[in-house]
Design a protein around this nucleic acid. Structure first.
Length: 668
DNA sequence: CGCCAGCACGCCCTCTGCTGGCCAGAG
DNA sequence: ACTCTGGCCAGCAGAGGGCGTGCTGGCG
């Protein structure tokens, strides 16, 4: 019930940490101004003042009595109220003494104390305007002038229940008529215990829950008091369920007695437990580890610790080879590995965990809370490990080294991937389900899928035709179909070609245009290459005509295609057509390799005038002997089977070869 | 007093996915 | 020669699993 009403802190609460948590919350609420909050643990043995762990700003604690708000909190319009125990002197055991504490005047909190009791100044951070008021059930909240704090916030307040039935009954009868809206906190102390007392939070809050859930019952009363009636006391009690808190003065023979710790909320039915508990308030740790000199309170703790040194693991898992120092470890291990029991369930999603701390960490992924701030940048993490890992980015440290190549990495996972993909056999690759591409990393496959195969709301149009595509990959594949298309068509004949410049040359056959004139004899040519050939042959005395020899019989030809035609009858097998892609470095290497292969096979290139280099398309069809060797190496290496690459028919190849050769030579 | 269960905190690990620089291939 | 593209790669952070350890408190 309480947890449902206060979503802040549903998790279990521990006495000291609760106070810290309040302070932590105050820090978080404090506008993030990063004030140097310092948690101090005041001596719990201080006879006059007990300050809950997590010291407030010094001013607030000054004197242990005056209640002041820290400037930062005032600025942030939040109220900080400290709860501290103030033992009243004899003359102060009345409400007048309380008022002298200035609590009401400064905080708006109305408190009532019982005669002889200590007074608790509340240590609560209340945020204004958080709408908490409507969430607080009547009688559960303490109203402040400008804020509200709930029972949950009262975790750090010491609440106890009056057991004095008769008195309570009278109080109850009086107060039931009073208007609700103000719950007075009353701390009752057994008269033989003059020190401040905290109650067991779990039990008593449960008790209060129970009270609140059944306020109509006769045996339960919730006493409320008007703020102005400070002289009256209120009592929260449930007579039959709170027997455990019986004041020792009223105990009967055989009745179980709850013993309270003077210094905290601990209660127990056994004195031995209390005695042992009291050691927790002492720094005494008499049991020293002889191996590391670390000190422990108890022999058991020391033994467990020594076991960590010796490797003694008495608790062995029955289902696997694991063994542990403590039974708790074993139990947890069994939950993780064998029973798969996950009792901590997230209320937001389906996540569940073996440990509460894991659920707490998980919840941060919902809330976005990032409590761990980097001191060097704006990064903040949700857990300590991530912050620690992040700090490596500032130090430049690369703690992980590849054992093969000594490359260093910042994260172990990165190194693992490196080793897997650089130094391992049978490296797994990820195949794209849409295009059969194989990609080394799954994450990169994701990038590939996003870039190439994701649906695009705005369709992309092909730049060559009207086709539109919603997938980038489909567009790319489609464009490749235009690659070998003879898109440039002559409007006077059936001629078509792939490049516009070829069409321009062709059109001169229709217009009769001959723009290239020989400077020596004024003869005109349609193509630059024709002029060049003419000039060399007729006007260049240094020109030595190229002779293309048949690799089979050695017969020479002045033109490559003529030799080529001859060679067809010399019995050489037909080679595959190879297209050299200009500008492709890799293909250029392969092209040179092919050239070398062809040379080695006996196709002599004699003063060919840069034929190999200038040829756009080469028909090796007549080199039958070469083809046997080269088609294997060429087909596999040079012409990878690619989508959209087409091969030409022999006749086309011859035509294209000549044309492109000439055009390329013209370009030169 | 010892055993035990449970809690809390911390550390380390893995898996995962995003990001951006680099580089070779393609145009 | 240049630009663009996409795979490769390391860096880095998010999320969660598993275990180590210390401590507290119930109980025999």
């Amino acid at each position: 019930m309480m947890a449902a009403q206060d979503s802040h802190l549903p998790e279990p609460f521990t006495k000291i940490k609760g106070a810290e948590r309040i302070w932590d919350r105050a820090r978080e609420d404090d506008g993030g101004d990063r004030l140097p909050w310092v948690k101090e643990r005041n001596s719990i043995c201080d006879p006059d003042v007990e300050v809950l762990n997590g010291a407030p700003p010094a001013k607030a604690l000054e004197g242990g009595r005056n209640l002041e708000l820290s400037p930062s909190l005032i600025q942030s319009e939040k109220h900080l109220i400290m709860l501290q125990t103030v033992r009243l002197k004899e003359g102060e055991e009345d409400l007048q003494a309380v008022s002298q504490l200035n609590i009401q005047q400064q905080s708006g909190l109305h408190m009532v104390v019982q005669r002889g009791a200590s007074v608790l100044q509340p240590l609560v951070v209340v945020q204004q305007g958080v709408g908490a008021q409507q969430n607080i059930p009547t009688g559960v909240a303490i109203s402040l002038q400008d804020g509200v704090y709930t029972f949950h916030d009262m975790e750090v307040m010491q609440i106890n229940v009056l057991q004095e039935k008769v008195q309570a009954k009278d109080e109850e009868n009086k107060s039931m008529d009073k208007s609700p809206g103000m719950l007075l906190i009353k701390k009752l102390v057994p008269k033989n215990l003059k020190n401040s007392v905290k109650i067991d939070r779990t039990k008593d809050l449960h008790a209060v829950e129970e009270i609140l859930s059944c306020t109509a019952k006769d045996d339960i009363s919730v006493s409320l008091n008007e703020p102005k009636e400070q002289g009256e006391q209120s009592v929260v009690k449930k007579t039959d369920t709170l027997e455990a808190h019986t004041n020792t003065q009223h105990r009967k023979k055989g009745e179980k007695v709850t013993i309270h710790c003077d210094l905290c909320a601990f209660t127990s039915l056994r004195m031995s437990s209390l005695n042992r508990h009291m050691k927790t308030h002492s720094d005494e740790k008499p049991h020293l580890c002889h191996l590391c000199l670390k000190a422990f309170r108890t022999v058991t703790l020391l033994r467990n610790h020594v076991n960590t040194h010796t490797g003694t693991r008495p608790y062995k898992c029955s289902d696997c080879e694991m063994a542990f120092v403590t039974s708790g470890e074993l139990a947890r291990h069994r939950r993780y590995k064998h029973t798969l029991e996950k009792p901590f369930k997230c209320s937001v999603c389906k996540y569940s965990s073996v440990e509460a701390s894991k659920l707490k960490r998980h919840i941060r992924s919902h809330t976005g809370e990032r409590p761990y701030n980097c001191c060097l940048c704006s990064y903040a993490s949700k857990d300590t490990y991530k912050l620690k890992r992040h700090m490596v980015t500032h130090s430049g440290e690369k703690p992980y080294e590849c054992y093969v190549c000594q490359a260093r990495f910042t994260q172990s996972g990165t190194m693992k991937i490196h080793i897997l993909q650089k130094h391992s056999e049978n490296v797994p690759r990820y195949q794209c389900p849409h295009c059969n591409a194989f990609i080394a990393r799954k994450s990169d496959l994701g990038v590939h899928l996003r870039n190439l195969h994701s649906y695009l709301a705005v369709a992309m149009k092909c730049s060559y035709c009207e086709a539109v595509f919603h997938e980038r990959y489909a567009l790319i594949q489609h464009k490749k179909t235009h690659r070998n298309e003879k898109r440039f068509k002559c409007d006077r004949c059936s001629y078509a070609c792939k490049q516009e410049r070829h069409l321009i040359v062709h059109k001169r056959t229709h217009t009769g245009e001959k723009p290239f004139t020989c400077v020596s004899c004024s003869k005109c040519f349609r193509q630059k290459q024709l002029l060049t050939v003419h000039f060399r042959k007729h006007h260049d005395s240094n020109f030595k005509p190229t002779v293309y020899e048949c690799p089979k019989c050695g017969k020479g030809y002045s033109r490559w295609n003529n030799m080529h035609k001859h060679a067809e009858n010399c019995g050489l097998a037909r080679a595959k057509v190879v297209t050299r892609h200009k500008g492709s470095k890799g293909k250029k290497k392969r092209w040179n390799s092919l050239k070398q292969d062809v040379k080695q096979e006996g196709c002599s290139e004699v003063s060919c005038g840069g034929l190999w280099e200038s040829a756009g398309t080469v028909d090796l069809g007549s080199f039958q002997d070469v083809s046997v060797v080269n088609t294997e190496c060429c087909a596999s290496e040079i012409v990878p089977v690619e989508y959209g690459i087409e091969t030409s028919t022999p006749r086309e190849q011859k035509t294209e070869m000549t044309c492109e050769m000439i055009l390329n030579m013209m370009d030169k």
